[in-house]
Design a protein around this nucleic acid. Structure first.
Length: 426
RNA sequence: GGAGAGAUGGCUGAGUGGUCUAAAGCGCUCGCCUCGAAAGCGAGUGGGCGGGUAGUCCCUGCCCCGUGAGUUCGAAUCUCACUCUCUCCGCCA
């Protein structure tokens, strides 16, 4: 959420940001509610001050054995008034935070203005898509033919958009998770975290999934638990409500979790294969940093995600999202995209965002800049490093051979017991 | 799931209706002392929302003793509900 003081003093900045995003939010109602709240607050505080003073006076009179009944009668009325006004302030507070939670982040000045994904900007490419001397197959056919992916039985035991991995396929999932976590912990300075896959509602609000995107989430009926849509949620909320020491920053965490998404509106898109699933695995990078460093941290974060693709030898490009596609909570976002032969184009495999203080304000995560200094909000960032299912799909497609087998990228072989090639599994 | 105990500031821990703007100790910061340090002495030491202000300085008001509601002129203190933590028992990968 945004700083209410900023909205109050510079509403035109917020209005401009909304226009660039192509979104609408009830700014005027928010400003009106804020003004009424402050007015009412001032009046009720004056009354409370009076109550405090008179209460002291009553105590003094009683101690001295004098009669205080006139003052007590008067205070009874004041007390009623306070109760009513407190009620009003509470109602306004609730409305204000509701409105505040519905306003998206302000895009950074370096973000290109555009209406939707067609106006995103490619910033670089790495690697060359392979030229096949045979007709390359899609990963769902490769995996099914090899016997390492089983979509049909997944449909039986759970439903559509789920997958069973088998044999070398199952092992490849584990190999990818381990390879990615090892790379980020050993070479990029991240500390590994293994969080719960169920989180409570406060955590979902803290990172911005709720209240606005409830229909994308799986909720455990009769409980306060939600299945995590990304490790970003439990890991960012690790420090919810805390004031960190300046020398703890920056904090870098890497976490593997399964991710669960209802994707209600996505029916009909990417119906085959591993690209769009209700459950998938992901290794996520999360950073907590000082505000003045967050944009250089974003560049490093993207480079860390790209490093996974480079070492796996997968051709990719990086796209900078425009204002119309940057996402509700992000101020700036890069999407690394991997080359997918079956699609004949690059497909999103990571998403790296700087949220500035947007999540920190919702989740109340601060740090103390120096001894005795006032706490300030940290900046939070996160990015996939990478989405495991899509990475596996990209490996199958980019490393397939004419005979239907798949060569395992060299960096993964130690994690596959030295296996160099996946062949038909029974 | 059953029984019991508890929740107070960075930490320990007092406080059972009105000088609680929460004792004391520890920790931390600064100062004195010292060649330097320790000890000792002195001072300071949270968060939030408003107002005065252009202001992160300063002045000032209100709120915060797990959360929420209630009783009362007045609640850390009394009542109710809830949450969480700990101990023991049961069940369990």
């Amino acid at each position: 959420m945004l700083d209410l003081k900023l909205i109050r003093s510079n509403p035109e900045i917020v209005r401009d940001a909304l226009r660039k995003r192509g979104e609408d939010a009830p700014l005027d109602e928010l400003l009106r509610a804020d003004e009424e709240r402050r007015g009412t607050l001032y009046e009720v505080e004056q009354l409370k001050r009076r109550r405090n003073e008179v209460s002291e006076e009553i105590a003094r009179m009683k101690r001295d054995g004098r009669d205080a009944s006139a003052l007590i009668t008067e205070m009874r009325e004041v007390s009623d008034k306070i109760k009513a006004m407190d009620e009003r302030v509470r109602a306004l507070d609730a409305r204000i935070s509701e409105l505040l939670l519905a306003i998206p982040n302000i895009p950074h000045e370096s973000v290109p203005v555009g209406k939707d994904e067609t106006e995103n900007v490619e910033v670089r490419r790495w690697g060359k898509p392979r030229e096949f001397d045979f007709e390359p197959k899609a990963h769902w056919d490769i995996g099914t033919d090899l016997g390492i992916l089983d979509f049909e039985r997944a449909r039986k035991i759970t439903g559509s958009r789920f997958t069973v991995f088998k044999g070398a396929g199952a092992r490849l999932v584990r190999a990818l998770v381990s390879f990615m976590i090892d790379l980020h912990t050993r070479e990029h300075g991240y500390t590994e975290v293994y969080p719960p896959f169920l989180v409570n509602r406060d955590s979902m609000v803290g990172t911005g999934q709720l209240p606005k995107f409830a229909e994308d989430m799986f909720h455990c009926e009769g409980t306060d638990f939600y299945l995590v849509p990304t490790a970003e949620v439990p890991v960012t909320n690790l420090y919810r409500g805390e004031i960190l020491d300046a020398d703890q920053l920056p904090i870098y965490h890497v976490a593997y979790t399964a991710c669960f998404r209802a994707e209600a509106g996505a029916a009909g898109r990417d119906t085959r294969g591993l690209i769009r699933q209700h459950e998938f695995d992901k290794v996520e990078l999360v950073k907590f940093v000082k505000p003045e460093t967050s944009y250089e941290e974003l560049e490093k974060l993207v480079a860390d995600a790209e490093d996974v693709l480079k070492r796996l030898g997968l051709p990719y490009r990086v796209v900078m999202m425009c204002t119309g596609d940057v996402g509700f909570a992000a101020a700036k976002k890069y999407d690394p995209e991997v080359w997918m032969p079956s699609y004949g184009r690059y497909v999103e495999i990571s998403s790296c965002s700087n949220f500035e203080a947007f999540q920190a304000r919702r989740a109340d995560i601060k740090y103390r800049p120096g001894p005795g200094a006032k706490p300030e909000y940290v900046h939070t960032l996160n990015g996939s490093g990478l989405a495991v299912g899509r990475t596996l799909a990209a490996i199958l497609e980019n490393y397939q051979e004419k005979d239907g087998s798949v060569v395992i990228p060299e960096v993964l072989r130690p994690y596959m017991g030295g296996l160099e090639r996946i062949e038909r599994c029974r």
